[in-house]
Simulated assay, not measured.
Amino acid sequence: METFDIYRKTRFGALVHEYGLDGSRLLPWAGYPMPFGGGWCVVRPGTTTQTHTQIDQELFIAIEGSARLVIGDQQMPFSKGDIAAIPKHTHHYVINDSAEDFHFYVIWWDLNHVNNFLAQHNDTTGCLA
């Protein structure tokens, strides 16, 4: 039986700067097929992420700190424990005007990717067909 890593630590010293934040793409995870992607994101104090529009749908989960989240024409406070759904084709960005790092986790998916995943898997365990 093939074995896979079932535990790993986020390497905060190795975050990659993109979209105006520092992050690490954590999903998909090798050996664990899944129909979505995900990553840890850190918005540094006094910075704003790049305004962008995804073709995927996204879910943001605030982990630590506070910021302002802009989705379309709406701006809202966003802090630890908050969750936001970002519809596909909607511009969005994060403003961190606090003195602390703002951490959030992002999960993204799109229906085509989900349908391809389902077509390749024969049960709910994630085993390949």
Results as ranks from 00 to 15, higher is better:
Ile61Gly: 01
Tyr32Gln: 11
Gly38Thr: 05
Trp108Tyr: 10
Arg44Asn: 08
Gly38Ala: 11
His17Gln: 14
Glu100Pro: 00
His52Val: 06
Phe117Gln: 02
Leu15Gln: 05
His89Phe: 12
Thr90Leu: 02
Met1Arg: 11
Phe104Trp: 05
Ala62Tyr: 02
Ile61Arg: 00
His17Cys: 07
Ser98Cys: 05
Asp123Val: 00
Pro35Gln: 00
His91Gln: 14
Ile107Glu: 04
Pro33Leu: 08
His113Lys: 13
Leu59Ser: 01
Gly126Cys: 02
Gln74Cys: 11
Phe78Gly: 03
His89Asp: 11
Thr53Cys: 13
Leu15Pro: 03
Leu118Lys: 07
Gly20Arg: 07
Phe36Trp: 05
Gly31Ala: 06
Leu118Ile: 09
Ala129Cys: 02
Gly38His: 05
Asp101Met: 03
Ala67Asn: 07
Asp82Met: 08
Ala99Pro: 04
His91Asp: 15
Ser98Trp: 03
His103Val: 12
Asp97Gly: 07
Asp82Ser: 04
Gly38Phe: 06
Asp110Cys: 06
Leu118Ser: 03
Trp108Lys: 06
Thr10His: 12
Ser79Leu: 07
Leu118His: 04
Gly37Cys: 10
Pro28Ser: 10
Lys80Gly: 14
Ala14Leu: 14
Ile6Glu: 11
Thr3Pro: 01
Phe102Gly: 01
Ser79Gly: 12
His89Met: 11
Trp108Met: 04
Pro35Phe: 00
Thr125Gln: 04
Gln57Ala: 15
Ala99Ser: 15
Cys127Gly: 01
Ala62Lys: 01
Pro77Gln: 05
Gly13Ala: 13
His103Tyr: 09
Asn122Lys: 08
Ile55Glu: 15
Ile95Pro: 01
Ser24Val: 09
Arg8Ala: 14
Gln50Pro: 10
Cys127Gln: 09
Gly23Met: 15
Thr125Ile: 00
Val94Arg: 04
Arg25His: 08
His91Glu: 14
Tyr32Glu: 07
Glu18Cys: 09
Asp5Thr: 14
Met1Ala: 10
Gly31Phe: 03
Lys88Met: 08
His92Asn: 03
Glu2Ser: 13
Leu27Met: 13
Ile6His: 12
Glu58Trp: 02
Met1Trp: 09
Ser66Pro: 01
Leu128His: 03
Pro28Val: 09
Phe4Gln: 15
Gly126Gln: 04
Ile6Ala: 11
